[in-house]
């Protein structure tokens, strides 16, 4: 086999990787022990972090990429994919994550943005990216920059699903509103969305985002996870909800079970039994404007 015939880091490989995550739960972890618990519970991947979003909120200050030692420790502990977060626009953090062997990079509003004008040029990387979005225009812009996967932002670190619901309904509703439109009308709509026209046309034709779309930001219980699946998510990210609960082992398994049987209330009920205290949630309206993470990125 001649090496020059090999192709690495193609769009197909990036989107293909994201497709393999479908129907799965991706869990935030801060050390090897938590990563092993997540893997045993049936997580499809883990997100390696220094602190979970709820602790980032509490501690304040600038939130950055995790320490490479921490990421390497988590990579060594599990066989499932390991993802890492880079600050919005911080392409050097992304380069470092790629060199560490992270399987997917989350350009994340949970960390403090590094660039207020440009997101990372994701097409320059071999590893795929996942990016947050609150509406169709934002999702299209990120895909246009090379994101292989979208996650609706929700509001991280609060254990309150309301924002996740708002953003998923937004995107799904905006996609449904494209059906029946002519290409000309879709191009006009793309201008309003400040989105690449060919991507909006592709989305209209498919009746869904052209990449895998997960839900994130506020999922704390099995019912929350199943709710997001019924609203059309391809899978879920669970951040603070697992390892800030009283019984992470059980909650992790229960959320995997609920995603697997998202349309079977009996199974969700079974999974929801005796989980102990979930993470303590916060009402979105109690946040100060500058504490709202979802407004980071555009």
């Amino acid at each position: 086999m001649k090496l020059e015939e090999l192709r690495f880091g193609t769009e197909l490989l990036k989107r293909g990787f994201a497709s393999m995550q479908k129907g799965g739960v991706i869990m935030d972890v801060t050390n090897a022990e938590q990563a092993v618990i997540a893997e045993e519970a049936g997580a499809v991947a883990v997100m390696a972090l220094e602190r979970v979003p709820a602790d980032i909120r509490k501690q304040g200050g600038v939130a950055r990429m995790a320490d490479p030692t921490k990421i390497a420790e988590i990579i060594d502990a599990v066989s499932i994919p390991v993802m890492g977060k880079a600050r919005i626009g911080h392409f050097v953090e992304a380069q470092v994550l790629e060199s560490l062997g992270v399987d997917m990079i989350d350009e994340s509003e949970v960390l403090t943005p590094a660039d207020e004008q440009y997101h990372i040029d994701k097409k320059k990387f071999k590893v795929p990216f996942v990016c947050g979005a609150r509406d169709l225009g934002e999702a299209m812009r990120r895909i246009g920059e090379g994101a292989a996967m979208i996650r609706t932002k929700g509001e991280a670190g609060k254990g309150n699903v309301v924002e996740a619901v708002r953003h998923m309904r937004n995107i799904m509703g905006e996609i449904r509103a494209l059906s029946g439109k002519t290409d000309q009308e879709i191009i006009a709509r793309a201008r309003e969305l400040e989105a690449p026209a060919e991507l909006v046309i592709e989305t209209a034709r498919m009746g869904r985002l052209p990449v895998v779309n997960f839900s994130a930001g506020g999922i704390a219980t099995p019912c929350d996870a199943a709710l997001m699946m019924q609203l059309g998510a391809d899978g879920v990210f669970v951040g603070s909800g697992i390892f800030l609960s009283q019984n992470p082992h059980k909650v992790a398994r229960a959320i995997v079970e609920a995603v697997n049987h998202f349309d079977d209330p009996g199974r969700i009920a079974e999974a929801s039994r005796d989980l102990g205290e979930p993470m303590k949630g916060l009402d979105i309206h109690l946040l100060r404007e500058d504490e709202v993470l979802q407004k980071r990125g555009w």
């Binding site: 086999m1 015939e5 090999l6 192709r7 690495f8 880091g9 193609t10 197909l12 490989l13 293909g16 990787f17 066989s79 994919p81 790629e98 062997g101 992270v102 399987d103 997917m104 071999k126 590893v127 795929p128």
Partner: peptide, 13 residues
């Protein structure tokens, strides 16, 4: 499992 390495080593041939 994962015989060729991590995602950055994924390939088409």
């Amino acid at each position: 499992r994962n015989a060729f390495g991590r995602q950055k080593d994924s390939f088409e041939a």
